[in-house]
Simulated scan of single mutants.
Amino acid sequence: MITLNHYLALGGLLFCLGLFGALAKRNAVAVLMGIELMLNAVNINLVAFNHFLEPARVTGQIFAIFVIVVAAAEVAVGLALVLNIYRRRLDSNVDDLDWLRW
Rank of each mutant, 00 (worst) to 15 (best):
Leu37Pro: 06
Asn40Glu: 01
Leu100Trp: 11
Val31Ile: 15
Gly11Asp: 02
Arg101Trp: 01
Asn45Thr: 14
Phe49Val: 03
Asp96Ala: 10
Gly18Ser: 08
Gln61Thr: 11
Leu19Asp: 05
Leu19Met: 12
Val77Lys: 05
Leu46Ser: 02
Phe52Ala: 10
Asp96Tyr: 08
Leu8Pro: 04
Gly21Thr: 02
Leu14Ala: 01
Asn27His: 14
Val94Ala: 06
Asn5Ala: 12
Ala72Arg: 09
Phe15Ala: 14
Phe66Met: 08
Leu37Thr: 09
Arg101Cys: 01
Trp99Leu: 00
Ile85Asn: 06
Ala76Glu: 02
Asn45Gln: 15
Val69Glu: 03
Leu90Cys: 13
Ile85Arg: 06
Phe52Arg: 08
Ile65Gly: 07
Asp98Tyr: 03
Arg26Phe: 05
Leu8Arg: 07
Ala41Ile: 02
Gly78Asn: 11
Leu46Cys: 08
Asp98Gly: 09
Asp98Thr: 06
Lys25Ser: 14
Glu54Phe: 15
Val31Met: 05
Leu14Gln: 00
Asn50Pro: 04
Val69Trp: 02
Ile65Cys: 03
Val42Cys: 11
Leu37Asn: 06
Ala56His: 08
Leu81His: 09
Leu81Thr: 09
Arg26Met: 02
Ala76Lys: 08
His6Ile: 11
Ala41Thr: 03
Ala24Glu: 04
Ile62Val: 07
Ile44Ala: 01
Leu14Asp: 00
Thr3Pro: 00
Arg57Trp: 13
Val70Tyr: 10
Leu14Met: 09
Val31Thr: 06
Gly12Asp: 12
Val77Gln: 05
Leu19Ala: 15
Met38Thr: 01
Cys16Ala: 12
Trp99Thr: 01
Val31Trp: 09
Phe49Met: 03
Ala41Met: 02
Gly60Ala: 11
Ala28Ser: 15
Ala76Cys: 13
Leu100Ala: 13
Leu83Asn: 13
Val58Phe: 11
Asn27Asp: 15
Leu10Ile: 12
Thr59Met: 05
Val31His: 05
Leu79Thr: 12
Leu17Val: 09
Asp98His: 02
Glu36Trp: 01
Glu54Arg: 11
Glu74Val: 06
